[in-house]
Design a protein around this nucleic acid. Sequence first.
RNA 1: GCGCCCGUAGCUCAGCGGAUCAGAGUAUUGGCCUCCGAAGCCAAGGGUCGUGGGUUCGAAUCCCGCCGGGCGCGCCA
Length: 545
Amino acid sequence: MAVDDPRAHIEQALRKALRQLVPASAEAPLVLERPKQAGHGDFSSNVALQLAKTLKRNPRELAQAIAACIEAGETIEKPEVAGPGFINFRLRSATRSGVVRQVLEAGARYGRAAGRRGGKVQVEFVSANPTGPLHVGHGRQAALGDALSALLEAQGYEVTREFYYNDAGAQIEKLARSVQARARGLRPGDPGWPEEGYAGEYIEEIARAFVAARGELADLEAVRRFAVASLRREQDADLQAFGVRFDVYYLESSLYTEGRVDEVVRRWTGNGKTYEKDGALWLRTTLYGDDKDRVVRKSDGGYTYFVPDVAYHVTKWDRGFRKVINVQGTDHHSTITRVRAGLQALDAGIPPGYPDYLLHSLVKVMRGGAEVKISKRAGSYVTVRDLIDWVGRDAVRFFLVSRKADSEFVFDIDLALQRTEDNPVYYVQYAHARVCSVFAQWGGDAACLPGADLALLAGERETALVRRLAEFPETLAAAAAELAPHAVAFYLRSLAGEFHSYYNAERILVDDEALRTARLALCAAVRQTLANGLSLLGVSAPEKM
RNA sequence: GCGCCCGUAGCUCAGCGGAUCAGAGUAUUGGCCUCCGAAGCCAAGGGUCGUGGGUUCGAAUCCCGCCGGGCGCGCCA
């Protein structure tokens, strides 16, 4: 019986060879890579290249010496030396295809880091002000944040998804005044229209609803409550339609009412980290890498926004989150240094790199060859709801998470509208539906699949598929560690592509029972892996399309 | 001006703590359904990896300069 973990097997063999040959360097770190080219085997080690310099030996000869120490067995073939000194390992086909059985046994758990405890993690994302509907930038954040959360859960973390609601402050004040003015019949730009008021149509809708509910227009506080409640409802409905749920909604106003903002300032001052200048209170953030000190309390007595921001992060720490990831737009990157500095200045033992950030570039929406400007204040922007209505939730989620977070995103509405079938999500979903269709056609009992003779899966395309399946767990681990959910989308694209090729080249439901069973087992493993990956991205895995 | 990020095929983008990548999709062109779903497959053309240096046995990948683009540089949030 071949081993279940070929990587560990090869590492052991390699380590043993090193101890024999170069005892002094035998404990050097071993990195086994997956060669990109199929001809280079299943695993590759560059250890000879790494050691060549310190040992002052020819890398290729060293590699050959190491390879000569490793014998072929039932798990691997005899390793080969290639290029400047790589040692390439090729698995026996039964070893390689053993992953099929692992997938079938693990089911929905395949790809997850079994038995690992990562501790508590909080992922904060979206955190939109309740001053308007969610725009496509929020959509990107929702897709990224939710996928990242799922990835971290798969790595054994206990994840809390959190939405920080700014329900206090000037933006909300502006919202209330805008609604009030609108209800009084004013339009944006009219004399008496509030400074930088919100001009979107939703303001008028809220104003009409407020009047219809017989609200007292002169009561600005009542208008504020009504407008905030109304927009929160709308945002919640949009998020629900997007398939994103939050565990905690944290209200900024509670930081004030619970005295947490004052407490932060007291501690800074008590630690001697503040000073008075020009009638304001300043924090010495330059002690922690900021390029200038920051105002804490303005000369008018109010706090600057970053104080509640720090107070909020203190609650994260106090709630026991030692790992926190904030998903935000790159336009917020300057706040990173400030928030971290504010936390440092508390002398509370919070590490300098706390919290982590996943920053994403803005989404540029193109329509009719022109950019649609995204701006809350302008009021004319594409909303998450628009995107969902146009191309469907699955396509929006997959698309928005298919790109590196820090690359600028061009979302072509016309393309999405006219050619939805070009969206890569359908390609992946189609592979899943195809497998389902094969099984429907077959109509047999899937219980026989785990007993399939997997050594029969030795064809070129079967080898490629099986290798790809084996990469899934490490792909997820890397994506989680690098905060890079897009890697999952690219992986699924590749897996689906290899399945489509296989499907077109080979018939699954052949007459030979043993071969048919083996191929069905492979298909079942592909289906399971596709479903697991899509699930992480919040995308459905349909049986029919 | 300063800081961070980004320049890879016509277009949209992967690859980037060196070596075993010049890559994917799309678009263009040509093939493949009497046979498990053609929303698919196979094949072809298409790029000095912005540019100029540097380090190395080896650079799309690391370092520096320049050019081009994005985002920040408030006693706004």
